[in-house]
Design a protein around this nucleic acid. Sequence first.
RNA 1: CGCGGCGUGGAGCAGCCCGGUUAGCUCGCCAGGCUCAUAACCUGGAGGUCGUAGGUUCAAAUCCUACCGCCGCAA
Length: 330
Amino acid sequence: MRIVMMGTGTFAEPTFEAILEAFGTDVVGLVTQPERDGGNKRGSTRQTGKGMSHIARGSQRVAIIQPESINTSEGVAQLREMLPDLLVVAAYGQILSREVLTIPTLGTINVHASLLPKYRGAAPVAYAILNGEKQTGVTIIKVTPGLDSGDIILQESRAIHADDTTGSLEARLAGLGARLAVAAVSQYKAGPVAGTKQDPALVTKAPKITKNFGLIDWSQPAVSIERFVRAMQPWPTAYTFLHRPGKEPMRVIVNRAHVSEFEGMVRGDITTGLLCSGDLVGTLGVASPSGDLLIIDELQPAGKKKMTAEEFIRGYPLTAGMRFGPETLS
RNA sequence: CGCGGCGUGGAGCAGCCCGGUUAGCUCGCCAGGCUCAUAACCUGGAGGUCGUAGGUUCAAAUCCUACCGCCGCAA
C-alpha cells in the first residue's frame, strides 16, 4: 500500500513519525506547506513545512512536494505522480478539493484534534479551552468534501487540565493522534473500513483564529478571560493595552493569569479593566464585571521581555486611573 | 533590504525629543535600629565603563554614524 502523508507543523509531526515507524516502506510521499522564509526569526510560531520535510529526509524513500496550493492543477498533478492508495492528513491547513480526494485509491483520512462533531475547523484545541471544556480528544475521520464532516473511524478522549494552554494540550493530543492514525492505517491495510456518521445536531465550529482575536475583552467575567489567556497561548497570545493618564497606550501581552479565590471581592461601581494592587504585595489584579479579580501572573510589555507581575509593578508603578482596555478607550 | 521597540548598579523602569550641578524611582543586597513579631517601618551603606566604537561640542545617558545584543509585530 502506498501511503502519502499530508500535514504541517508540530501537530502533524508525531503522526508522520509514527506512520513512518509503523509502515516504513509503505510511506512514499509527503505533502506539506512551502518553507516560507518571510524573515522568520527565532521563536516564531509560524508553521512552515520545515519540520515535516526534515523528518521525511531522514527516510530516503519519501518524495516531498510543497505546493502553494494542493488544489491547483500543478498540485493535483504532483500528488497524482505519487500514486497514493491512502492519504493521511493532519493539520495541513488547506481544504482538499473534490478532485484531490479522488486521487488516492482507498481514500483519505484526517487526524482532527477534537471530539467530532464538536469543533469542526482550524482551531479546535483553542476553542475547547476557550469554552471551558473538561475534556476533548482526537478523532480520525474519512475525509469528504465538507469541512471535517466525514464518517468517524476512531475517536478517543482526553482530559483538559486546569492549566492547559493550546500549546500544551495540542502537544498531548498530537501524541494521541499519532497512535490513532497508526491504528486507522492498520485497518485500511486489513480491508475495507467502516465509519460512523456524525450527528448533525451536535456540530459546533472552531473557525480559524487570527491575530486580532487575541485582544482581551475586559467586560467578560474573570473566569472567561483566564481561559482566553490560556487558549491564546502560544499563538496569537492574549493582549491588551495599558492606559496611563498622560501617556500613550502601551501594548501588553498577558502570558499567565488566574482568577482570585476571593469571589466578588470588588464592590461598588466597577470600571472595566481597572488595575488594582491585589490582595498581596506584588500582585496585579484587574477588576472584572462579575466582581472577581483576575490576577495577572506574567506579562510582557511591547518590546520588552516577559516579566512577572511583581517586576512589572516595580517598573510601572500603579497609579490612580491606570487601566487595561482596547487601544482606544471609548 | 518587511515594520517597530529596547539596551541606564543584582531585577524592573524614569531621565533622552528641548545636551550642562551629587544619573533618579520601585525593589533586592549588606549593616544597624524599632518591634512579641513580619513580605512592615526607620537610619546608614556597598554596588553604574548609562550595550560597544567612533563623531559633533567648552560639555554627551541625552545629538549624529556604525556595529553588537535582546524583544515585539508581521501566520
